[in-house]
Simulated assay, not measured.
Amino acid sequence: MKIKNFILLSAGILINQIATADSFSETLKGKPKLNVNLYVFAADVSGSINQGNIKYEVDQPFKETLKELDESFMVHVDFSKGKWGIFADKQIVKTSQEKNAMNIPVALGTKLDQSSYGLYYQAYVSPFYDFKSHSKLIVEPTIGVHRTQAEASLAALNKTAAIDTSWNEFFWGSRFKYNFDTSWNLASEVTFGAENTISAQAYLGYRFPIMNRDLNLRAGYKYFEQDYKTNNFHWEIRQHGPVIGINLPIF
């Protein structure tokens, strides 16, 4: 509860900065920066998907998802200027499988398209230290919108049951970054969605120079939980597992 109260306080600081027009121009001073993050989320998935009389229990470790994977695309784009930044995160996973249930062939296909669009503000930035002018600690409250589109189809005995739905939800939270006195760094993020969504992730990174840019290799862990209900549809899914990625500064 204390963490959630802190997140709400941080989001309030962000909104207050937006409303303070006199000092707004001061917070935009600085060079624009664009970063692209490519990552792989080795998620174990559990939960259930319900629509009317159709109920599909999900209990799928990452090794099973990998065998049945048709398509996967994961990218995070971040643009900032001064103390302000915007970001977009896209994750598409498409799977298909064929199994037998009581000697009856069953075909199952799923497609999950998750997007996040957000705005953040550097509410706290500690003084620079000597290692390439990186700040020691940065706290960035963030707000934005999650969009989820879920599709599932189940075919057996020449009959097909299909689920196709999407929804949007507001979220708030905060990001934290910490730079050691070496090339090592830490990053974490915690957000809460209006539709009972919880997202938490933490990474250990290592910077190394390539072509006058500091690439940042990162490895960590992510937990993502959604519990969405509307009419006769109920989506209750949990994803958790290790994440490996690389941060590519464009400019």
Rank of each mutant, 00 (worst) to 15 (best):
S174C: 11
W172I: 10
Q201K: 14
E225I: 11
A155D: 05
G205C: 03
A202C: 10
R175W: 01
A219W: 05
D164Y: 09
R207S: 08
R207E: 03
L215Y: 10
S166K: 14
A155M: 06
D181H: 09
N232R: 15
Y203C: 06
S188L: 05
A161R: 07
D164E: 07
W167C: 03
Y206D: 01
S188N: 08
L186H: 02
A162W: 05
H234V: 10
T160G: 07
A150M: 07
T230Q: 14
T160I: 13
F233R: 11
T160F: 04
A161V: 09
Y203V: 04
L204E: 09
A187M: 11
A202T: 14
T182I: 08
M211N: 12
N232E: 13
R218H: 07
A162D: 14
L217N: 02
D227T: 10
N216S: 12
T182W: 00
F192V: 11
F192A: 10
Q239T: 09
N231G: 08
K222R: 15
W172S: 03
R175S: 04
F176M: 12
G173P: 01
T165E: 05
S199T: 08
E236L: 11
K177F: 09
Q226N: 15
L154H: 01
R238F: 06
Y178H: 12
N158P: 05
S188W: 01
F176D: 03
V190Y: 06
N168W: 02
N232Q: 13
M211S: 13
K229M: 07
M211T: 14
E225A: 15
Y178A: 13
Y203M: 12
N185P: 01
G173H: 00
N168C: 05
R207C: 00
T191K: 04
F171N: 01
H240P: 00
A150H: 05
S199F: 11
T160L: 11
W184D: 01
S183M: 09
W184F: 13
L157K: 13
N216T: 14
Y221A: 03
S166P: 10
N179I: 02
A219N: 01
T191D: 00
N196C: 08
Q201W: 07
E236W: 02
A156N: 05
K177N: 08
N179W: 04
F224R: 02
W184Y: 11
A152M: 12
S183T: 04
R213E: 09
Y203I: 05
R175I: 06
N168V: 06
A162G: 03
L204S: 15
A150D: 00
Y203N: 03
L204W: 14
L204Q: 07
S199Y: 12
F170Y: 15
F170D: 11
E189V: 14
G173Q: 00
S188C: 11
L154Y: 03
D214P: 03
K159F: 06
Q226R: 15
F170S: 07
R213L: 10
Q149G: 06
S166H: 10
H234N: 13
L154E: 00
R218V: 08
F192L: 13
E169L: 09
